[in-house]
Design a binder for these strands. Sequence first.
DNA 1: GTCTATATAATGATAGAC
DNA 2: GTCTATCATTATATAGAC
Lengths: 204, 204
Amino acid sequence: MTGATPRRMGADESLNREALLDAASELMLEEGYAAVTTRRVAARAGLKPQLVHYYFESMDQLLLDLVRRTTARGRETLARVLASPNPVRRLWEWSSDTEATALQIEMMALANHRKAIRAELADGAKRLRRMQVDALSNVLERLGIVNDVVRPDALMAVIGSLGRMLVMEKSLGVTTGHRNTRALVEHYLREFETRLERSTDSPV
Amino acid sequence: MTGATPRRMGADESLNREALLDAASELMLEEGYAAVTTRRVAARAGLKPQLVHYYFESMDQLLLDLVRRTTARGRETLARVLASPNPVRRLWEWSSDTEATALQIEMMALANHRKAIRAELADGAKRLRRMQVDALSNVLERLGIVNDVVRPDALMAVIGSLGRMLVMEKSLGVTTGHRNTRALVEHYLREFETRLERSTDSPV
DNA sequence: GTCTATATAATGATAGAC
DNA sequence: GTCTATCATTATATAGAC
């Protein structure tokens, strides 16, 4: 418990600490993880570069804390999404969120070569996935939609990967086939919503 | 044509030049794009750091050349894939290629904040997509599989995004729902292959 | 045509002042 | 508990030697 603390460090609840994480997040989103340097993070937060090392043990630790904060916030957003009366469509919209996807690419790239970040991101992804699949299973079961081919977790994989890819490609400037892909998704969403409305009309 | 050449530069066909691109590719794959620095690229290629600037105008140019070479090689591989008697399954396998996916994440992240690289990567993606969709359309048409809901380009989007996501997640350490997702893909692949075999048995 | 010596700026991090 | 002066290292890039 009393592990040697080589250097003193700012409190976890500090406003400056949060400001530095905000700055890091913005930089990562706008210019990529390589732009998240001590000096640039500090400058954007209106602080001196040395303060980064006061509030964070290292740049790696700052990035790890950022990933943790981001996935935690993701769970909060997802909880609201899943509370919707039409969770499937909102899940699709959520999977197509531009900002979250851009951040995810950066963090995936970061995780590819930083063990601690990979573990943190994997944990976050698993927890999000479990929330999604649980909610999807509930809805499908409640509506009596049982399908041996398309299991809820597989359906979630399709929704998630397709949404993310459309956003990625669009930000890249590639939209080949997007119209038909969206039409395909819309087709199944409508089919689901028809069943949903039918079940909502009739009382439980 | 005689634009001012501020600095002399190595020939395009030089072995050292290729070695530097190889080193950059390996580094990007193993440690991410941020690890692609003059010193590290040179060290891996067994050359002096200054040579990087002899063969490439700048680090940005090196990265751009690497993206161009990578997408060009991708087209060669894809052409072989599409020449297969069973192009749909091989397209699925190709979309699930681990190395290519890891490189793609890095390059997507890189493209997010470098205009020239974004343009190059977008061009490469469009050309690959066109090859894929053309081939898929041909096969589906030849087999008489016409479907207003699942158009060839949308089907390609599903195959591509799903394959990439499974690989990404697996490398992250997340495999929740992968079994059922693979089973889903396998279901449709088998269905397609049954029709394919039937059409191959009967001569044209 | 190929490579080296060198310049300049940015990086993560530490020790110590308030 | 908060912040600053400073360091060693690495980054990209240039000018010029062979």
